[in-house]
Design a binder for these strands. Structure first.
Length: 199
DNA sequence: TTTTAGATCGTCT
DNA sequence: GACGATCTAAAAA
């Protein structure tokens, strides 16, 4: 399923899939309810890989099925799955999900006052709930021994909806590569990309 | 309820 | 030197 397909084709298939982390002896599993596809060089202005390969986005050009974890806004980690063969960039960002295992651990990481539906509602929140940081960049998500694993079983979406991507400015937002399950409370609210206001 | 500003730093220009 | 695949708290409406 992963391996040689454009991120746009893979993204909807990941809805309903489960991402599981084994970190600090704790297991946390999240059922994915919202994802976003990102393309390769020259084909997707919203993608990190749009211009060319750089040290930062290198894993996006690496083997499929591996994690692409990046740091943004000076404080947040985001988690992707690489979907195309080595040498070709393409990845799916895991934007939101529902915690189905290890909810106590997730709550401990996110905060005791956080509602269940908000535990993994948003890409940076999802990584916090899982305990994912940059050290997990490029790990094989299909290797049973990995601290981070993706399970496609159960990925049989009932109703998939498509919309514009969030947080992507200009051209990129016009490409409706955001997929999410309908009627899911854990889906992050859509916010159009905002330019920083001039002082 | 909606909007805004600030936090904070790696990456690319 | 500018800004980002974000989030939160606080202010405004």
């Amino acid at each position: 399923m992963l391996g040689n397909r454009h991120a746009v084709e893979v993204a909807p298939l990941l809805l309903g899939a489960t991402i599981t982390s084994r970190i600090d002896g704790q297991r946390v599993s999240i059922r994915l309810t919202e994802v976003e596809a990102y393309g390769g060089v020259g084909e997707d202005p919203g993608s990190h890989a749009f211009r060319r390969e750089t040290p930062r986005n290198a894993t996006m050009f690496g083997p499929p099925g591996h994690a692409y974890v990046y740091f943004t806004y000076g404080m947040h980690w985001c988690l992707n799955v690489v979907t195309r063969p080595e040498g070709t960039a393409g990845a799916v960002l895991m934007r939101a999900g529902e915690v189905v295992e290890g909810i106590e651990t997730a709550r401990a990481r996110r905060g005791t006052d956080v509602r269940d539906r908000d535990l993994a509602r948003g890409p940076a929140r999802l990584t916090v709930a899982l305990g994912v940081t940059g050290v997990l960049d490029a790990v094989d998500l299909l290797d049973p021994r990995s601290p981070l694993q993706l399970s496609l079983s159960g990925a049989a979406p009932l109703e998939v909806r498509v919309g514009p991507r969030t947080g992507v400015g200009g051209y990129g937002a016009a490409t409706p590569w955001r997929f999410h399950l309908a009627d899911e409370p854990s889906v992050s609210p859509y916010r159009a990309a905002q330019r920083r206001r001039p002082t």
